[in-house]
Design a binder for these strands. Sequence first.
DNA 1: GACCAATGCCAACACTCGTTGGCAAACGCT
DNA 2: AGCGTTTGCCAACGAGTGTTGGCATTGGTC
Lengths: 193, 193
Amino acid sequence: MTAHAHQTQPRRSDATRAAILRAARERFAADGYERATIRAIAADARIDPSMVMRYYGSKEGLFAAAAEFDLRLPDLAAVPPRQRGEALIRHFLTRWEGDETLVALLRAASTNPGAAERMRGIFADQLTATVATFGTDPTTTARRAGLVASQILGLAFTRYIVRLPPMVDVEPEELVSWIAPTLQRYLTGLAEN
Amino acid sequence: MTAHAHQTQPRRSDATRAAILRAARERFAADGYERATIRAIAADARIDPSMVMRYYGSKEGLFAAAAEFDLRLPDLAAVPPRQRGEALIRHFLTRWEGDETLVALLRAASTNPGAAERMRGIFADQLTATVATFGTDPTTTARRAGLVASQILGLAFTRYIVRLPPMVDVEPEELVSWIAPTLQRYLTGLAEN
DNA sequence: GACCAATGCCAACACTCGTTGGCAAACGCT
DNA sequence: AGCGTTTGCCAACGAGTGTTGGCATTGGTC
């Protein structure tokens, strides 16, 4: 095996690829997996639908590329233990408002098995790994991560997907003050109650 | 206007209608709104797709009929104030496990505007009405109901839709012990924190 | 300037979808 | 028994889908 550079050289079509990806994220976030058509995405990106196929292989391939996502969880072990809940909800709120990829993934996860699988990966692996660094009883780590995910995803679902009026109108700072204690208890509270 | 009986007399096709509705709920719950095809629903009910149209008018009409749902919230004002969170989560868990209508509604709400609207109605109206009977500051009622909805729907989303392993495996009783305090605080906790 | 790969568009295929209209059989009523 | 209504199925339409192959054009390389 020869030594070869892993960084692919820039292609002339990179701008097109990026435009497709941007349009795809928008459409998937707004309409979900099945209602977001390749034709509509291509129209948004001002190119031909066949280009999407050439560059991403299939609709599933396009979604896989568009739903690439990293939670970028901060190193919570470095945060004072009693402030970890607040740090978590703050991080998620900013992450969510600034990147529609998560909304796309969340919408699609309801109906698309691949999207659900990816969602499981993100929230089980990344979140569990973080919780595991806290030194609580290892047998409860997965459960704690799951509970945190349930509140985080429930917040996102009601605020960005279903758009429940009280959850849409409430100020982020007030959300933090309500939800931080919940996450804090899920992270560090006693297991039996 | 003559006096007429409002109770429609039983029709010969009632069995067929019920079979369609049952199959529809199953399909909508398993596949979501757009992947659940009328043809598949009709096949499950062992009738012709055109019958679905005759009895329910359209796919949207069928979904509206299949997603008819009442939370049947108990009279929480009669429950001791400190046990209302536990009573709530218990009620929702049993309601959810026993009726796939809610799962159908939840799945469809991600991509279908009508389903989202109905979800808003159910969780805003019914839940808010219940919270309003508790005598807390009326200006916080909607927010409290929204927060409760966020945790309840987050639980359902992770357990029944995305199927996060830790949330699927955990025993209902342990879910109650973890989530009851959360709902309790959302219902009766101080507003500013 | 000649070659060749990369980029883009057009037209079409094969399929599935919701939906419709017509026709046959079964039923209920007098 | 005879009639009208109800129930059910069949065949088809029109629209929209993901996907494919071919062809013109552009760009870089020797």
